[in-house]
Amino acid sequence: MTPQAARWLTRLYPWAWRERYGEEFEELLETGPGGLRTVVNSIWSALVERIFPTVGGNMNPSLNSFGRMIQRPSAFIPLTMSSIALVTVLIAVAWGFHQTGHVDRDSDEGSIAHIFQLLMSLQVPIVLFFAIKWLRRAPRQTLGVLALQAGAWLAACAPVFYFNL
């Protein structure tokens, strides 16, 4: 493998890992046979190292740690929905202001309002599912995630109340 390719593959790893193993790993790549299999193997391993770091991170994090908890679909999907709702409202407000010079409060509910309502209401059963499933198993971490979800929900609603939309 060429030194440039070896260096590029090594750079895919986190900084702390490269500090410890970068030089010897790069040398191994340079002297090895190379090929597609080596490239795929290195990319995959770098990805795994970024997700489950052995250097500069906790190698075996608790299954119920906050970091693991927030990765569960029922935890991050409501957060994502609130974020999308917030961005949608802000874009709508900015677009209305750009078009008319003021925030339009009197227009009928359009598709953006319906999208916002769907995003805000459909996440409620997901949050309930998350709370029911995890509150007894890991109460502290679950409450942390629920607080984050509530904060995101309120943040998405804030422009609606602020602009009286």
Partner: peptide, 24 residues
Amino acid sequence: LGPGTLYGAIARLEKQGWIAPMAP
């Protein structure tokens, strides 16, 4: 073993104290 797999194993074994690095 691919190089990524090898160094993934080395890093974990070293962190667990089952192998140790020597002078380069």
